[in-house]
Design a protein around this nucleic acid. Structure first.
Length: 680
RNA sequence: GGCGGGGUAGCUCAGCAGGUCAGAGCAGUGGAAUCAUAAUCCACGUGUCGGGGGUUCGAAUCCCUCCCCCGCUACCA
C-alpha cells in the first residue's frame, strides 16, 4: 500500500473541568490507537489536539471562585495535558486556544468571511452595563420575574416558575458585575448563514459516504439536521473573554466559542509547524487535497465536525486563497457510561482520568476501554470488567504466554533464541497464522474498527497458548530437542508480533516486551515474519501484568457508592398528612373554554373557585372539546405557582388521569358539591 | 409529547445492503495437561434475537404497531 498523508485531530476538551473515562472512549483512545498504528505502518501522519479555553461556562467558573478565567484554563489545561501524557496519548502537538496564534487564526477566518460578505449582520436589543461599559450576556443579568415575582430571575427565563420572556419584560434588571441597572441598547451581531451551504453539505456527505463508508450514527445525525433545515448562526457575542472581533466598530465583542474552537485544530498544527522549524509545514497537511483528514470525536460533536466546520471550510475555499481539505471520514463514537449510569460530575458518578491513573497503570485501562469501545452504541465501564480484562486477558492469556515462553527459553536454551529445525504441520500452520496477522489487524484499524482490531490481535495470544500446549515442549525438550527448539523459536516470533500488534493499544507494556526480547520494533507489515534470529540473546524476564486483587476493586466500588450523590427520592416514598395538606385541592366550575390557536394540546379555561375566577391553561385538547367542559365541576390544584404556557398564564392545574388508550379523563365532582370546596 | 439511540445466551457485546446468522469473549459444568503470574488447552449453550402483525419461497436482519430502557428537547400537568 502506498504511503498516505494523514491528518488526525481529536476533539478539543473544554478547559473547565477534568476529563473522565468517557472522554477517552469517545475520541482520544481510538484516535491514539489509530495514529500509533499508522505511524508503524509508515504513513505520513500528524496528530493534533489542544484545550478549548473560551466561552461563558469558563467565565462563570471563574466568577464563582473569584478568580480570573486565565486561572481556570491554566489549571485544567495543565491537568488534562498531564492526564493525557500519563494515559499515553501521542499527540504531535497539544495546544490551547488562548494562544496568540489561535486568536490570529480565528480572526483571519472572520475577516475573510467578513470581507467577502459571507456573514449576515443582525441587530437586537440587549442589556448594557454603563458602568462596566459592556453588554451583558443573559446569565449576567438578574431581575424580578414578570410572571411570578421571583427576585433572582435571569434575563430571559425564570428558574423559579420556568417562565420564558423577552429581556425587555424583566423588572428591576441588575447587572451581576456592578449591581447597576443596565440599560437596553441596540447591539449587532454577525451570523454565519449555514443554510446557504446545506445543499453542498448534503452532497459532500453523500459523496464521502459513498467513497469511504461513513458510520451510520454520523449519517443519522446529519440527516436530522438537514431535515430541520440549517439556519443562520450567530458567531459573535458581547463578552470580554475570547477572541476579539477584529473590526473597529465591534468593540467589546468576541467570536462565539463554537466558531473558533474547531479552528483550534488548524492553529495547533501551525504551532507544531513552528516548533518543527518550518512555519509553513502545516499547509502540507491542511491545504493539500491529498491529505486524508480524520477528526476523532464523540457523538456530541458530530454537528460541528460534519456540518459546521466543513461549511466554514467551503466558505473559505470559495475565495481566492489556498484551499483547505474537508474531513474524509468522521469516526464518531457513542458514549461510555459508568457502572450502568451516565458519567455525572454533579452526582459524583464516574472517575476522572487523572484519579484513575493514580490507582492503576494506563495500559490495563487502555485495553479495557479499547475492548469495549462505544463504536456502535453506548457501552459501560464496570470495575469488575476492568479487573477481568486485566487478570484473565492481559495477565493470563497474553502475559502468561510471554512468561511461559521466556522462562522456558531461559531454562533450556540459556536465554538465546533457538533455531528452527525440521518443521511439522503444526509449526508451519502457526508460522502462516502469525504472518497473516498484521494485515488482518491492519484492515480493521483502517476501517476504524478499533475494537475488533484489538480483540483480533489478542486472538494471536490465544493461538500462541494453544500452539504451545499442543506442541508440548516440556516433553520434547527431553526427547527431541530440535523439535523443542523449533517450537520455542516460533513462540518467540509470535511474541514479537504480539508486542507490535498491541503496541498501539498498550504502548507501555509493548515497550517492556520489546526490552524483554532485547529487540526493536519494526515496520508494521514486517512484524509477522521472522524478526528474531537464532542465537539472539534475550533480555531480563519480568511480570508485565500483575493481577488486580478483588479487595482493590471492591474498595473502588464501595468508594463510588459512598461518594455518589443520591438521586431524587423514590416515587413510592411516603409523605405525611401535613405534606399532603400543603396541596390545596379545590372544586372549581368551568365558566368558559376555548381552544388555543397554534396549539395542539392546550385549552384556555376560565374557572370559578368559590368567589374567585381563574384562568387555567390545560393540556387536554386532544381528549376534550371546549364545549364538553362547560359548567363541569372539576378538581384543581389551587395553590400551584402560576406558569406561562404559550405566552398565556395558567393559574392552577386541573386533575386528570390517563386512560388505557393514553387519553385523559378529568376528575369531576358531584353537582351537589359547591365550587370552592376543599378536596381532602 | 417530539427527535435520536437501544432492547440478541447468566454478564459485556458482535451480527442488521434478508438465505450456514443464531455468534464471540467472560462466567458456569466436565475433562486433559503441568513449561508458566494456580496461568493453559479441549468439550458442552432447546437463547420465543422485547411483544404482535405484515412483506417474502425465506427476517434478528425490511415495513407497520405496541411495550420497555437511555440521551437530548418541548406548549408536562
Amino acid at each position: 500500500m502506498s504511503r498516505e498523508k494523514v491528518l488526525v485531530t481529536a476533539a478539543l476538551p473544554y478547559a473547565n473541568g477534568p476529563i473522565h473515562l468517557g472522554h477517552l472512549s469517545g475520541a482520544y483512545l481510538p484516535a491514539d490507537i489509530y495514529v500509533r498504528y499508522k505511524r508503524l505502518n509508515g504513513d505520513d501522519i500528524v496528530f493534533i489536539g489542544g484545550s478549548d479555553e473560551h466561552g461563558v461556562p469558563i467565565t462563570i467558573s471563574a466568577d464563582k471562585e473569584g478568580v480570573k478565567p486565565k486561572e481556570i484554563i491554566d489549571r485544567y489545561h495543565n491537568l488534562n495535558k498531564e492526564a493525557f501524557e500519563k494515559f499515553g496519548m501521542s499527540f504531535d502537538n497539544y495546544s490551547r486556544t488562548s494562544l496568540p496564534i489561535h486568536h490570529a487564526t480565528g480572526q483571519e477566518f472572520f475577516l475573510e468571511f467578513y470581507k467577502r460578505n459571507v456573514l449576515v449582520e443582525k441587530k437586537s436589543l440587549q442589556f448594557y452595563d454603563e458602568k462596566a461599559k459592556m453588554f451583558l450576556p443573559d446569565r449576567y443579568v438578574e431581575g424580578t420575574c414578570p410572571n411570578c415575582g421571583y427576585e433572582e430571575a435571569r434575563s430571559d427565563e425564570c428558574e423559579n416558575c420556568g417562565a420564558l420572556y423577552q429581556p425587555t419584560e424583566l423588572k428591576n434588571p441588575k447587572s451581576k458585575i456592578t449591581g447597576e441597572n443596565p440599560v437596553l441598547k441596540e447591539t449587532s451581531h454577525w451570523y454565519f448563514p449555514l443554510g446557504r451551504y446545506q445543499k453542498r453539505l448534503e452532497e459532500y456527505i453523500n459523496e464521502m459516504n459513498r467513497q469511504y463508508g461513513w458510520k451510520e450514527n454520523v449519517l443519522n445525525y446529519c440527516r436530522g439536521w438537514f431535515k430541520d433545515g440549517l439556519g443562520d448562526r450567530a458567531i459573535t457575542r458581547d463578552l470580554d473573554w475570547g477572541i476579539k472581533v477584529p473590526l473597529d466598530s465591534n468593540e467589546g465583542k468576541v467570536l462565539y466559542v463554537w466558531f473558533e474552537a474547531v479552528l483550534g485544530y488548524i492553529s495547533s498544527t501551525k504551532e507544531w509547524a513552528i516548533n518543527k522549524g518550518d512555519e509553513n509545514l502545516w499547509r502540507k497537511y491542511w491545504q493539500d487535497t491529498n491529505t486524508k483528514y480524520v477528526p476523532f470525536i464523540g457523538k456530541d460533536n458530530i454537528v460541528f465536525h460534519s456540518i459546521i466546520f466543513p461549511a466554514f471550510l467551503m466558505a473559505w475555499n470559495d475565495g481566492e486563497r489556498e484551499k483547505y481539505v474537508l474531513p474524509q471520514n468522521i469516526p464518531a463514537n457513542e458514549f461510555l457510561n459508568f457502572e450502568g449510569k451516565k458519567f455525572s460530575k454533579s452526582r459524583n458518578w464516574g472517575i476522572d482520568v487523572i484519579d484513575f491513573l493514580k490507582l492503576f497503570p494506563a495500559d490495563p485501562l487502555r485495553y479495557t476501554l479499547a475492548a469495549n469501545l462505544p463504536e456502535t452504541r453506548d457501552t459501560d465501564f464496570y470495575w469488575k470488567e476492568f479487573q477481568l480484562r486485566n487478570n484473565s486477558e492481559l495477565a493470563d492469556i497474553l502475559g502468561n504466554f510471554i512468561n511461559r515462553t521466556l522462562t522456558f527459553v531461559n531454562k533450556h536454551f540459556s536465554g538465546e533464541v533457538p533455531s528452527k529445525g525440521k518443521l511439522d504441520d503444526i509449526d508451519t500452520e502457526m508460522i502462516n497464522l502469525i504472518a497473516e496477522y498484521p494485515a488482518k489487524v491492519s484492515k480493521l484499524f483502517e476501517s476504524y474498527k478499533i475494537r475488533d482490531g484489538v480483540l483480533e490481535a489478542m486472538n494471536l495470544a490465544r493461538a500462541g497458548n494453544k500452539y504451545f500446549n499442543d506442541s508440548e515442549p516440556w516433553k520434547s525438550v527431553k526427547q527431541d530437542k530440535e523439535k523443542c527448539a523449533s517450537t520455542l523459536n516460533i513462540c518467540l516470533q509470535a511474541i514479537y508480533t504480539l508486542a507490535e500488534l498491541l503496541s498501539p493499544v498498550i504502548p507501555f507494556s509493548s515497550d517492556k516486551i520489546f526490552s524483554m526480547l532485547n529487540a526493536e520494533i519494526t515496520e508494521w507489515h514486517k512484524c509477522g515474519g521472522e524478526n528474531l534470529v537464532p542465537g539472539h540473546k534475550l533480555g531480563k524476564v519480568e511480570i508485565i501484568f500483575p493481577k488486580i486483587e478483588d479487595e482493590v476493586i471492591e474498595k473502588q466500588m464501595q468508594q463510588l457508592n459512598k461518594t455518589a450523590i443520591k438521586e431524587e427520592p423514590k416515587q413510592d416514598e411516603q409523605i405525611t398528612f401535613d405534606d399532603f395538606m400543603k396541596v390545596q385541592l379545590k372544586v372549581a366550575e368551568v365558566l368558559s373554554a376555548e381552544k388555543l390557536e397554534k396549539s395542539e394540546k392546550l385549552l384556555k379555561l376560565k374557572v370559578r373557585i368559590g368567589n374567585e375566577e381563574r384562568q387555567i391553561i390545560a393540556g387536554i385538547a386532544k381528549s376534550y372539546k371546549p364545549e364538553d367542559l362547560l359548567n363541569k365541576k372539576v378538581v384543581v390544584v389551587a395553590n400551584l405557582k402560576p406558569a406561562k404556557l404559550m405566552g398565556m398564564e395558567s393559574q392552577g392545574m386541573i386533575l386528570a388521569a390517563e386512560d388505557e388508550k393514553g387519553g385523559l379523563k378529568i376528575l369531576s365532582a358531584d353537582d351537589l358539591v359547591k365550587s370552592g370546596a376543599r378536596v381532602k
